[in-house]
């Protein structure tokens, strides 16, 4: 067997690939792209929710929201670390994000205009993310799979707190109910788009499935998401903004309406309502942090020299 065959055999028999193992170049590149994109999504994803920390309606909600956004920073960090084992530095990845070369999940290019958006993001966006992420706990690349296990454990609290925000609103005043429905209306379709293009338009899917970098197709995951949400919304007494949403007894799945792919591709390519704000915020934080990172390095270097001098003197 050649190296490629040995590699594929490991993948087929669910043996995890570890950093120093031989792997096809294309596998490495696919993983770097996928993991860094995922990491960027966590980091950019901090912004729309961070937007409401200062205005959270109760102290408890404020604390929960900070903890949640902070978790996302942690998730970004785990993922950057996993990608770093593939031979790319975090600096390189961040540079790719800031230059627009690397993508992140388009959902974060939508604005958070009311408090109910914190609920809708938790329920729908995190819900869709979990749907994607749970299978990745068994992905073929060891560091990625281990990172995902950690992330999934923490992620379940995110979705629950989101649903609970909506639940409280749905039982609240008329204004709160309207706020709740409005947020669901705005976040439903972008969440559906989070699973990516339809399978027949998603050229990488097959190879990724073979490498077990992906374990279910976009359409499979999307269907699962619809089936779950269509039931959960009943508890909220709200509506999913899709007139074609209907239980199909034959298929034992919900049928749903057409996704506006034109909107999707526009947001991906930079025309979303907040693309520029999100990227600008990241670049600004990074640039304003430059002197801090540099000073910490300079200080560490001085300390090393001092320690060295002391040990020589002694």
């Amino acid at each position: 067997m050649n190296q490629e065959e040995i590699f594929q055999q490991k993948v087929d028999t669910e043996v995890r690939i570890e950093p120093k193992d031989w792997m096809p170049d294309k596998y490495r590149q696919t993983l770097i792209r996928q993991i860094s994109q995922h990491a960027h999504s966590e980091i950019v994803g901090m912004l729309p929710e961070g937007n409401w920390i200062s205005r959270a309606p109760t102290l408890q909600r404020k604390a929960i929201l900070i903890a949640k956004v902070q978790d996302e920073a942690g998730h970004g960090l785990y993922l950057y670390s996993a990608a770093e084992t593939l031979g790319i530095s975090r600096d390189e990845m961040i540079a790719q994000l800031h230059s627009g070369k690397a993508k992140y999940s388009s959902i974060f290019n939508y604005p958070t205009t009311t408090w109910a958006d914190m609920g809708a993001i938790g329920w729908l966006v995190d819900g869709a993310a979990i749907m994607n992420q749970v299978p990745l706990c068994r992905t073929s690349y060891g560091p990625y799979a281990r990172g995902m296990v950690r992330i999934c454990k923490e992620e379940s609290f995110h979705q629950r707190q989101g649903f609970e925000i909506l639940l409280v609103l749905s039982k609240g005043t008329d204004e709160q109910k309207a706020m709740c429905q409005d947020a669901i209306n705005r976040w439903w379709w972008p969440s559906m788009m989070m699973f990516g293009p339809k399978d027949d338009e998603s050229p990488n899917t097959q190879q990724s499935m073979k490498w077990k970098v992906k374990r279910f197709t976009n359409d499979e995951l999307r269907q699962r998401f619809v089936d779950i949400c269509a039931e959960q919304i009943k508890i909220l007494g709200m509506n999913i903004p899709d007139s074609d949403l209907k239980w199909n007894a034959e298929k034992k799945h919900y049928d749903f309406g057409q996704i506006n792919w034109e909107e999707f591709w526009n947001v991906v390519s930079g025309n979303g309502p907040c693309n520029k704000e999100r990227l600008d915020a990241r670049v600004k934080a990074h640039e304003e942090g430059a002197w801090v990172r540099e000073a910490a390095n300079a200080f560490a270097e001085k300390q090393k020299q001092r320690a060295h001098k002391n040990s020589v003197a002694a």
């Binding site: 950093p19 084992t85 031979g87 790319i88 530095s89 390189e92 540079a95």
Partner: peptide, 12 residues
């Protein structure tokens, strides 16, 4: 960002 910035693998 320059391409030389590369993480060391475990064991390098």
């Amino acid at each position: 960002m320059n391409n030389l910035l590369r993480k060391f693998y475990y064991g390098d």
